[in-house]
Design a protein around this nucleic acid. Structure first.
Length: 120
DNA sequence: TCCATGACTCCGC
DNA sequence: CGCGGAGCCATGG
């Protein structure tokens, strides 16, 4: 696995339950503020159970579009699944949108460093 | 190395 | 608020 993906997974694991971050937020946290699309690609590479290559659970559902909408437009399976997972964590939707002003959380570089050093 | 592919984002209209 | 187009850049063939 490349360093980029490892950093993405670490940053996503730093997002607290009940909060969300945008793809761009995660990209900025890992040092590539214009690589939002690659963050999505990295999450797409997770195993079906949302595990990284080391078997750690990555809370992919907490990463959404900067508009507050979910990225799985037109996907009848993953879209509703992601919404259900977020609601279970306490995230409240307004229509199809998560009010970012209320639930957005931006990963911090120091936390990222700790996660990278800690295997577990 | 070049080229296609994407769970994105910003800008106009 | 929705759409189309362009920019962005990590991956894999």
């Amino acid at each position: 696995m490349s360093g980029f993906r490892a950093r993405v997974y670490a940053a996503v694991r730093a997002i607290p339950s009940g909060r969300v971050a945008s793809y761009g937020d995660v990209a900025a946290a890992v040092g590539s503020p214009r690589a939002a699309r690659q963050v999505g690609w990295s999450l797409a590479a997770l195993s079906e159970g949302g595990r990284d290559p080391q078997g750690r659970v990555v809370p992919w559902q907490r990463v959404i579009l900067t508009t507050g909408r979910l990225a799985f437009r037109g996907d009848p399976i993953r879209g509703p699944l992601q919404r259900a997972m977020l609601e279970d964590e306490g995230v409240v939707f307004e229509g199809d949108v998560v009010p970012m002003s209320r639930f957005r959380w931006q990963p911090q570089a120091d936390v990222l460093h700790d996660l990278l050093d800690d295997p577990g």
